[in-house]
């Protein structure tokens, strides 16, 4: 079976670090970064990028629409 891999691109400047995407991720890919953006929020990033399946849940629940999701079969 072909492995499906996904990738999440976060607009780090617009992210407010609400962590709604973190709890919605079924594979625990996303975490809040220890770094902050220019407005002082700990933005979301792919801490565990190899596990991402590109399901799109994080993009769906993001209140600020900062997440873009990609998916490819290997």
């Amino acid at each position: 079976m072909a492995k499906v891999r996904g990738a999440v691109v976060v607009d780090t400047e617009a992210c407010k670090g609400c962590s709604v995407c973190v709890v919605s991720c079924p594979k625990n890919v996303l975490q809040l970064n220890k770094q902050v953006n220019s407005r002082g929020y700990n933005y979301s990033y792919m801490a565990n990028a190899d596990e991402c399946i590109g399901c799109g849940n994080c993009g769906l629940v993001c209140p600020d629409s900062v997440i873009t999701v990609y998916r490819a079969k290997e």
Binding site: V9, C18, G54, G56, L60, V66, V69
Partner: peptide, 26 residues
């Protein structure tokens, strides 16, 4: 290699403007 336009699954709606929302986080 995954981040290519043909692999796009979900993106911001076109009808939304680029303004950063003033709402609280979450």
């Amino acid at each position: 290699d995954i981040i290519k336009p043909e692999n796009l699954v979900y993106k911001k709606a076109d009808a939304l403007s680029d303004n950063i929302m003033h709402y609280c986080p979450g």
